[in-house]
Simulated assay, not measured.
Amino acid sequence: MRVSLFITCLADQMYPEVGESVVRLLHRYGCEVDFPELQTCCGQPAYNSGYQDEAREVARNLIRAFDHSDYVVSPSGSCTGMVHHYYPQLFENEPEWKAKAERLIAKTYEFSQFLVGVLGVKDLGAVFPEKVTYHPSCHAMRLLGVKSEPGELMAHVEGLELIDLPRKEDCCGFGGTFAVKMADMSEAMVCEKAANVCATNAGVLIGTDMGCLMNIGGRLNKENKPVRVMHLAQLLEEGVKNGERKHGK
């Protein structure tokens, strides 16, 4: 199975280790992974700021970058959600590009969605004996409908104790350009989210979007809270290594 990695801006610039974890796990299940270097941003920052013409140009470039791909997998529900939910709107008056956008949509998946829904993988043989809580990102949950997949993957991790996050459906306050335009409101939201994370007494916070993890992790760090912040792919890769050591593989 040939898969192209859609790394996203935040992973590329700030969390490259998340992309590495995704690639290693995909290789583990027989995927041949490539990285189209033509890819840049999905266009979401421009789109959210009202610059639709600029977002359209960026979107065209992403469509070109993955034109050859059989599957496109991303460690971000937000960027994947942008492609799925907003690309048809961007090209509603351009039939040729709308058709190209729809072809990209049909083969583009968020990481956990791809593992569970396409590869049929739920149990990776991972071991992670920690108390963990999970923040579901707004875009993955609401735009893509990614709800059960992360939980299904974590449910099969040996030793992992998943503690329900209070008010987990609430936004963390990042929202891309929202955090810049509405800084005071964004800060109030992330303070509440960080307090809810701490209320679980979990030692690890898991998420599927780097924007959320950066925002919540930054707040936890500012408050000197000893909570480790990880992307789901990092948790699974570390758990797989733990499992191999435990079972002598």
Rank of each mutant, 00 (worst) to 15 (best):
S78Q: 03
C171G: 08
P88G: 06
T80A: 02
S69M: 05
A155S: 13
F128K: 01
A155E: 15
L90P: 01
A155Y: 01
V118S: 04
H135C: 02
E94N: 13
G159Y: 08
C191Y: 02
S137V: 01
M189S: 02
C138H: 07
K181W: 04
G77S: 13
Q89V: 14
A202I: 06
V118H: 06
G77F: 04
G159F: 05
E169R: 09
K122M: 07
K181I: 09
K107C: 07
F128P: 03
A194N: 00
V204C: 04
A195G: 06
C171K: 08
F178Q: 08
H68T: 13
F111H: 02
C79P: 14
F114L: 01
C171Q: 14
L160H: 01
K131T: 06
H85K: 15
Y109F: 15
M182S: 12
F178G: 11
F178H: 11
G145I: 03
S74F: 12
K168P: 07
A199P: 00
K107L: 07
K168E: 13
W97T: 13
A106Q: 10
F91S: 05
G175Q: 09
K107N: 08
A199V: 01
A126E: 12
G176Q: 03
V157Y: 02
Y87N: 11
N93M: 06
S76L: 05
R142T: 13
P136N: 05
D67L: 10
Q89H: 14
C172K: 03
V132R: 08
A140I: 04
A179R: 04
L162R: 01
P129T: 12
T200V: 06
C191A: 14
G120M: 10
S148Q: 14
A101T: 00
K131Q: 13
T108F: 00
A183N: 11
T108M: 00
P136V: 00
H85Q: 14
V157K: 01
G159W: 07
T177N: 09
L162H: 00
A194G: 02
Y71D: 04
V72C: 03
L153C: 10
P136D: 03
A183K: 15
V146W: 00
P129Q: 10
E94K: 09
M189G: 01
A179G: 04
